[in-house]
Amino acid sequence: MTEQQIRSIMQRNREDGCTALFETYYHYVYAIVFRYVRRYGTTEDIEECVVDVFAQVMEHFPAIREGTLKAYLATAARNRALNLCRTLSADARQTVPIDGDSFIELTDAQDIAADTEQRELTRRVLDCIESLGEPDSSLILQRYYLGHSAADIARTLRMNPVTVRSRLHRAVKRLRTMLEEQDITL
């Protein structure tokens, strides 16, 4: 759904608008929050943060400039996630840098060139994953981005756990071959 469509629904009915907003951006917001909070918090913390983000966006929705809704959501998600990380790390006596970028686990975090290379590499890996097609691309990301078990993946993707295991095995093999052709070794 486009931002314009969401705004249109929101004008007619706030609750329906909220549903439209959630349906459109839920997985994106969750992915952002997960990206930051996974190291510091639980699944419950991640889910709480996701709800906070949407509640915040809904509260400020009339003030969000047209054309910036997705960016606003992403920023809100990132900031909320970072704040939560700081709270959680304070509880755990860990240190969370103010700059969220330092969460990125670069091979050489001080090196901008390495940062660029890392992003390019991630992009190419994602290209390969995407080219695997469904459901293999989804299986790879469930396993290696979200860290889910075969049983969790089966539940999320509504597949047989045996199927998940066998397909994942084959998908990783295919992915590795594709990456090796691009001189990327995993």
Partner: peptide, 15 residues
């Protein structure tokens, strides 16, 4: 190219 972990690569994705 250096050997990397698929998990690490993906979990460091951003933007």
């Amino acid at each position: 190219m250096k050997e990397r972990s698929l998990r690490q690569l993906l979990q460091n994705a951003d933007g």
